[in-house]
């Protein structure tokens, strides 16, 4: 049941953080490329998802004065 220190050391443990760094560096490059290369319209659609009105939205007059043209 106890955590016993089974090993004196782990061989080549220095590689672990390097591998972890590499994985995430590549992952980030991937995300960055995806984000940069994806179409702007796609992101526009996504970012407008919360703004689709539901009934509760229209119950109270919108006072923020944001209209589509100023986008």
């Amino acid at each position: 049941m106890k955590f016993i220190n089974y090993l004196e050391s782990i061989t080549d443990i220095g590689v672990y953080p390097l591998v972890a760094l590499l994985i995430f560096f590549l992952f980030f490059i991937g995300v960055a490329f995806y984000v940069i290369l994806a179409r702007k319209e796609y992101f526009d659609t996504l970012s407008n998802l919360p703004l689709r009105s539901s009934e509760t939205d229209t119950l109270i007059p919108n006072t923020t004065g944001y209209d589509e043209e100023t986008k």
């Binding site: 995300v31 970012s47 407008n48 919360p50 923020t64 944001y66």
Partner: peptide, 16 residues
């Protein structure tokens, strides 16, 4: 965005 009635500044930034 809901309270301001405008979309988030950058969706790209939100993914990162």
């Amino acid at each position: 965005p809901k309270a301001a009635n405008r979309p988030v500044y950058s969706y790209r930034l939100s993914i990162i």
